[in-house]
Simulated scan of single mutants.
Amino acid sequence: MKYFYTIGLLVLSNSFMTLAWYGHLKFFPKNSAYSPSLWTIILLSWAIAFFEYCFQVPANRIGSSELSGPFSLMQLKVLQEVITLIVFVIFSSLAFKNFHFNYNHLIGFSLLIGAVYFIFRA
């Protein structure tokens, strides 16, 4: 069950992180009628990132084998990176019309899947 909690919390965490890091590019473009100052965008991103940490820290604590979880630290990190990329591709595909997934991305993701295989192969 800790597997599912960890992965679910990591997905939620990375959803907030992606929104904090890239959402302003979609929702406050420079050529829009309302373009807040850079400091306003930074503070807004920090406010969103707070929720990322609210999910990331428990995910790592629940999932860490150091605290009787199912994943080693290396496994947690690789899992988090793969989830980050999956969430980013979904967000980019939905939010930005100029995002195009091509064979370079497919090859890169295949290599990441290989990394997951070798990291989890204990």
Score class of each variant (00 low, 15 high):
residue 98 N to V: 13
residue 95 A to Y: 09
residue 23 G to Q: 02
residue 32 S to V: 00
residue 44 L to F: 12
residue 29 P to R: 04
residue 34 Y to F: 09
residue 100 H to C: 12
residue 114 G to H: 00
residue 25 L to H: 15
residue 115 A to Q: 07
residue 90 I to M: 05
residue 114 G to S: 00
residue 1 M to S: 01
residue 40 T to M: 14
residue 11 V to N: 04
residue 54 C to D: 03
residue 118 F to D: 09
residue 120 F to Y: 05
residue 50 F to W: 07
residue 67 L to Q: 14
residue 47 A to L: 14
residue 64 S to W: 01
residue 75 Q to C: 08
residue 77 K to E: 11
residue 116 V to W: 05
residue 85 L to Y: 08
residue 49 A to F: 12
residue 67 L to F: 15
residue 30 K to H: 10
residue 26 K to W: 06
residue 84 T to E: 08
residue 111 L to D: 02
residue 82 V to M: 09
residue 101 F to G: 03
residue 46 W to F: 15
residue 74 M to E: 13
residue 39 W to Y: 11
residue 83 I to C: 01
residue 79 L to Q: 02
residue 122 A to L: 07
residue 86 I to L: 02
residue 47 A to F: 15
residue 18 T to R: 03
residue 95 A to S: 15
residue 3 Y to I: 04
residue 67 L to Y: 10
residue 48 I to F: 08
residue 20 A to P: 08
residue 35 S to A: 14
residue 57 V to P: 07
residue 117 Y to C: 08
residue 66 E to L: 09
residue 6 T to N: 03
residue 3 Y to G: 00
residue 95 A to V: 07
residue 3 Y to L: 00
residue 77 K to D: 09
residue 109 F to Y: 11
residue 108 G to K: 06
residue 31 N to S: 04
residue 34 Y to T: 05
residue 88 F to S: 10
residue 14 N to P: 03
residue 112 L to W: 06
residue 84 T to D: 09
residue 121 R to P: 05
residue 52 E to Y: 15
residue 65 S to K: 05
residue 32 S to G: 03
residue 103 Y to T: 12
residue 23 G to V: 03
residue 41 I to W: 07
residue 14 N to F: 03
residue 59 A to C: 04
residue 117 Y to S: 06
residue 110 S to A: 15
residue 13 S to Q: 06
residue 21 W to V: 13
residue 70 P to Y: 02
residue 13 S to E: 00
residue 121 R to E: 13
residue 88 F to G: 08
residue 98 N to I: 13
residue 33 A to P: 09
residue 113 I to Q: 10
residue 71 F to V: 03
residue 73 L to M: 13
residue 119 I to Y: 04
residue 120 F to E: 03
residue 121 R to V: 06
residue 51 F to Q: 10
residue 4 F to W: 15
residue 58 P to M: 01
residue 54 C to T: 02
residue 121 R to L: 13
residue 64 S to A: 01
residue 69 G to Q: 04
residue 32 S to M: 01
residue 67 L to S: 15
residue 96 F to Y: 11
residue 21 W to R: 11
residue 78 V to I: 11
residue 8 G to I: 02
residue 92 S to M: 09
residue 65 S to W: 06
residue 24 H to C: 08
residue 12 L to D: 07
residue 12 L to I: 08
residue 22 Y to L: 14
residue 51 F to K: 05
residue 44 L to C: 12
residue 20 A to I: 06
residue 8 G to K: 00
residue 38 L to R: 13
residue 39 W to I: 15
residue 50 F to L: 15
residue 38 L to D: 14
residue 86 I to P: 02
residue 8 G to N: 02
residue 75 Q to W: 00
residue 46 W to C: 14
residue 16 F to C: 01
residue 63 G to P: 02
residue 17 M to P: 02
residue 27 F to L: 12
residue 61 R to H: 15
residue 73 L to A: 14
residue 90 I to N: 04
residue 107 I to M: 12
residue 59 A to T: 00
residue 44 L to G: 12
residue 71 F to T: 03
residue 26 K to I: 10
residue 90 I to W: 01
residue 36 P to L: 01
residue 117 Y to K: 05
residue 15 S to I: 07
residue 97 K to P: 11
residue 2 K to R: 06
residue 99 F to P: 05
residue 69 G to N: 00
